[in-house]
Amino acid sequence: MRYKVAPDPEDGRDTLAAAHRAVPLVPGSTDDCCARLQSRLDLTTREDAREWLAFLDALGLATETTRGYERVQTDPAADAVGAAFREHVFGAREILDALAAAEDAVTAGEAFAEIRPIVPTWERNRHDDWERVWRERTSRLLEWAALLGVAEKRSDGYVDAPASQERQ
């Protein structure tokens, strides 16, 4: 399953770690978990908290059980989190493949061109300006890729992390 969530990476790893800590070790209901996330991350809406919860689930940092969500005892900085991002966040795989195939840095606009064909029809119909929404989402995915260590951000765009290390 691939999740279409990618919360704002504005505060990066610190917010990711705080969100991870906000999920209880003992399973809690979705409402309880969202309330904890909303309070601890100072989120304005329950929908924002729900997005964070789904993102944590996608990254393997939280899991839904029959009794609710619980925190997974994984370091948010672990390599497995970057791998989970690639496999479980919609669009991440396509962007990372584009970075790996590119000879030069990839801009957010170029990355959007890779995502554009896979945007579901219902998503296109859901927004008056779906391209703007998905361009923003592509930018967030690129930022998360860099924060999770599977890409590197440069002044001219983004590059594949392993390829960028080989060039140095």
Rank of each mutant, 00 (worst) to 15 (best):
L53E: 10
A6H: 05
A105N: 05
S29D: 09
A111M: 08
R21N: 12
H20K: 10
V89H: 09
S164F: 11
C34S: 11
L148E: 01
P117A: 04
R86Y: 13
V81N: 08
A100T: 02
Y158N: 05
R137M: 00
P7R: 04
D156I: 01
V150K: 01
K4P: 05
V106S: 02
M1W: 04
A163G: 13
V23E: 11
R124I: 10
P9T: 03
L141G: 03
V5L: 03
S155A: 15
R132M: 07
K153F: 00
A105M: 01
Y69V: 08
L148T: 03
A17L: 07
L16P: 07
R126G: 03
V106G: 02
V72A: 10
Q168P: 01
P27H: 08
D8V: 01
T121E: 14
A49V: 06
R21W: 04
A151P: 06
L37Y: 10
S139I: 04
R13I: 15
R86L: 06
R167K: 10
A19G: 07
T66P: 00
R116Y: 07
V81H: 09
W52M: 10
K4A: 09
R21I: 00
R86C: 03
A49F: 11
P76C: 12
A17R: 15
T74W: 03
L53M: 14
F85T: 06
